[in-house]
Amino acid sequence: MGRLFNHPLAAPALIALIVIACGFGLGSNFYLRVAALVWISALAAIGLNLLMGFAGQVSLGHAGFFGIGAYAVAVGPNVLPVSPLLALVLGIALAAVIAYLVGRPILKLKGHYLAVATLGFGILVYMVLSNESGLTGGPDGMPVSRATLFGWRLKGVDTWYWITGGVLVVGAWVAVNLVRSPTGRALRALHDSEVAARVVGVDVARYKLVAFVVSAVYTALAGGLLALFNGFITPDVAGFMHSIEFVVMVVLGGMGSIVGSLVGAAILIALPQALSAFQEYEHLALGLILMVFMIFLRKGIVPSLVALAGRGR
């Protein structure tokens, strides 16, 4: 069992099984739609987890990258002769470049200072998206044109369910590859001791930047997928609350756990739906549940449960 857990393909395989099982198990379009939203958020959370859980660098502004990906898909085809899918690729590249330029100065900061600087970045993106009404439609948002792939129009909840689920599985696989590579070891090393990482040859500043850019790419991809899936977006996708939700997904599911990011995303997306029966007490219940989870599973859900299972053996 332990060996199965440790296999490089364990996390992506488990996530693939979940996606397939839900794909055939969830009968209604409503549930498939919620699940697709979970896959999209999980993708962003995995990206942020690479930065926070593995490299140990916080970001309270990752929704900014999500917004860049989403709006690249929405605005791109209106201003450039590009298809929505090509616009998605350009949006991801743009997010990577911006992450590189923003990351260089701010990743010199640590802890709370880095938190505030990334928060500032997120606010900046949000302000640009909601103020540039001519391009973005302002606070009211804008429609997104349908994507086509080889002449095939990508529409319908089930189509997008499988697209987002597939991208999530590939994203999880790539993340696991990274974590187990020399780059991943450098990231995990600098998380525990920057000075020790440096004296064995790790260029700490460079690897923080690598983590920041890779996580921005994941998050921008997720944002682009949401725009294509939803067909409409508002600047709130880049908003402060959305950044916080990503952080909560990572921490709640478990820092440094790829499967944990999926669990965190599932709870944050699905729980409000389930709790909507409580009406005005919905947020109260959600807050209470988050607190109880963190108090009793303080390392995050997945790592804590794995530790419990290990002790049980």
């Binding site: 590859n177 020399p182 070891r185 064995v200 040859g201 790790v202």
Partner: peptide
Amino acid sequence: VGRHLKEARGIVPHLLS
């Protein structure tokens, strides 16, 4: 981690394992 500088450090091969 001590082998870091002896290892090939291109990121794309790492992402694709």
